[in-house]
Amino acid sequence: MKKLIILSLVSLLFSIAYAQESGKKLPQVSVKTLNGATVNTAELSNDGKPIILSFWALWCKPCINELTTISDVYPDWVDETGVKLVAVSIDDARSSSKVAPTVSGKGWEYEVLLDINGDFKRAMNVNMIPHTFLLNGDGEIVWQHTSFSEGSELELIELVRRLNRGESIN
């Protein structure tokens, strides 16, 4: 009986979730900046331009590879499209203190946030990293992708260009 109720509830929610068009915005979660300040993720913005939100960690090889690859072309991306990349580290207390020195030492120019207990990760339904989201100028999540392979960054910037042209990318 209990199982039946759960089952029907779950299938109901699933059917609604899949039927839903986009328009989802970022949830309200508290994360830290590298200088110790607290930020509400619902307030992340880029003056009406798209945002790339990338979940990563120091122990994740493909994540480092993705952010290093984008780092080489990032100044060009910003000049051309006005996009901003927000790199959300899910490193916990073991290695979160290494995030700032590593980011600086690699010369990354991203906005970096610390999600030390995975609250933002959970609210965004991230199971595996790297997991990258693309937000349009209105802050709506319009695209997401897991994993990274060489060349994936070209697809990503192409999607940003299409957003800037006002095309739908769903």
Partner: peptide
């Protein structure tokens, strides 16, 4: 205890 210094191109940490 953790102390770090970060500037563009350099990061140092001691803990």
């Amino acid at each position: 205890l953790q102390a770090s210094y970060a500037t563009k191109g350099l990061g140092v940490l001691a803990s």
